[in-house]
Design a protein around this nucleic acid. Structure first.
Lengths: 95, 95
DNA sequence: TAGATATTTAGACAACTTTCTAAATATCGC
DNA sequence: GCGATATTTAGAAAGTTGTCTAAATATCTA
């Protein structure tokens, strides 16, 4: 798990917005881009960063390339973040 | 809560290492810096970024300036991150 | 196969970051 | 108050990032 790639990917607001946009399900690059005032080329760059961090997965579907969240990473990421802070209630439990 | 400041602060490996170093308790700027091959001036810059994100607090103690984690932010940050991904098991439960 | 649509790659540029050295500020002990 | 120690501020250099335009690649439809 490339911690640095993940933190770096999350540092940009456009990329976080892309992730949010994908919460509803997979979308084509174009459909994602429709929400942003940015060129397709710039979008593509952000996708590359997200992909390198393995935060999104791609699948070509005919003419389109469809992006989806890699939500299996979620717990890892949460752990990564929590790991930066001292334990609250050391074992068993959240809450 | 300045989401952007927080994500930006976490994006740098030196700053994450500083946070880890503070897990054991408050330390002076110099004590923190002892672990890094970096000038005091550069360290100070990183402290400023962490402070701006409110991830650390400072207190002058005589000659020293003592840094400590603002761990009350921890849950907010975890939520911020998890918020980027779709809910796993919607209500009640973790695990 | 040709033209249209969707996306990425290449290359350039401005803005921001990380780092440095040098100088400024604050506090301590004498 | 002076000199020493601790930290920050200022200003500059090198590297990285986010954006753009132009061109390349892939797929669809006719």
């Amino acid at each position: 798990m490339k911690q640095q790639a993940i933190f770096r990917a999350l540092a940009d607001p456009t990329r976080r917005a892309i992730l949010k946009r994908l919460q509803g399900g997979a979308l084509s690059a174009g459909d994602i881009g429709a929400a942003f005032d940015i060129t397709p080329a710039s979008l593509s760059h952000h996708f590359a960063v997200l992909k390198q961090a393995d935060l999104v997965r791609t699948e070509r579907r005919g003419q389109y390339i469809v992006y989806s969240l890699n939500s299996t990473l979620m717990e890892d990421i949460a752990r990564m973040v929590l790991d930066l802070f001292p334990p609250h209630s050391p074992k068993g439990g959240k809450r």
